[in-house]
């Protein structure tokens, strides 16, 4: 027993040192990327930002900075993808939204349509909405247990439950991570050809410009069946597409 305590302490200290070393390494990558981006070394900054994102948790800020560096490296397709990812992580990131519209203009594709969901998520923090909804729902549920004999209290509890569930549903419905989970992005600089059937020599329906977003309906090997922004459907080769939400 006497020997076990020092050994546990030793292990803890070693783990802390390793963790702090790793953390300081990540921090170095990010600060290095930022300093290089500030000095105009965008190619190297992009490499470091991407390295950071591979090892660290995703961050709207880092994706935005990566997008800025890509834009300054004359790669608007990659820039638009990273701005989109920044917006998925933080829909209230207005600077990223403006940057995305500029990147879309550079790509020559029409700006994203603005609907009520976009307007809502750009103003209301979804996590706060979700947590509020959950808390309100639970309060309502506990109130039903406490005072079911008093009618007014019961109505109050029911309205709390309804409001809470509505807020949770709204947060679920508007969360871009749900909405974009089946969407892919045309990253290839040569665009993406849309075929009528999943065969190389099948009829070509149209060609999507880089920066276009398509909704994936199903996949068959290297072929993806999806819906175009205009509503038409067709087959694409997965090589030219990148998932909007990175696949881990």
């Amino acid at each position: 027993m006497r020997n076990k305590i020092p050994s546990t302490l030793r292990s803890g200290i070693v783990a802390l040192i390793l963790l702090s070393g790793a953390f300081s390494g990540w921090g170095d990558d990010l600060s290095d990327a930022r300093s290089r981006a500030a000095n105009g070394e965008h190619a190297e900054a992009i490499r470091l930002f991407e390295k950071h994102l591979q090892t660290e948790r995703p961050s709207a800020s880092v994706y935005f900075e990566l997008g800025e560096s890509a834009m300054k490296s004359a790669n608007p397709a990659s820039a638009a993808l990273n701005f989109r990812r920044a917006l998925i992580l933080d829909p209230r990131f207005e600077t990223a939204r403006k940057a995305l519209s500029e990147a879309n203009l550079a790509l020559g594709i029409p700006p994203d349509p603005s609907d009520w969901k976009v307007n809502l998520v750009s103003k209301v923090p979804l996590n706060a909405l979700l947590i509020t909804g959950v808390v309100v729902s639970w309060i309502g549920l506990f109130l039903t247990l406490a005072g079911s004999r008093v009618r007014a209290r019961l109505i109050f509890a029911a309205s709390l439950i309804f409001s809470g569930v509505s807020m949770v549903a709204l947060a679920w419905f508007c969360d871009p991570r749900i909405e974009f989970s089946h969407q892919s992005y045309v990253l290839s600089s040569s665009g993406c050809v849309v075929f009528n059937a999943p065969v190389d020599n099948s009829e070509k329906l149209t060609k999507l410009a880089p920066g276009s977003v398509v909704t994936v309906i199903s996949e068959r090997g290297r072929w993806i069946y999806g819906q175009l922004p205009g509503g038409a459907r067709g087959w694409f080769l997965s090589e030219g597409l990148e998932s909007l939400i990175p696949r881990t």
């Binding site: 930022r34 935005f64 979700l130 947590i131």
Partner: peptide, 17 residues
Amino acid sequence: SRSVVHVGGDSSWTPLF
């Protein structure tokens, strides 16, 4: 050139719920 270090947003691709 602008330096924007944005604070906010989620740090996960998985929604909170």
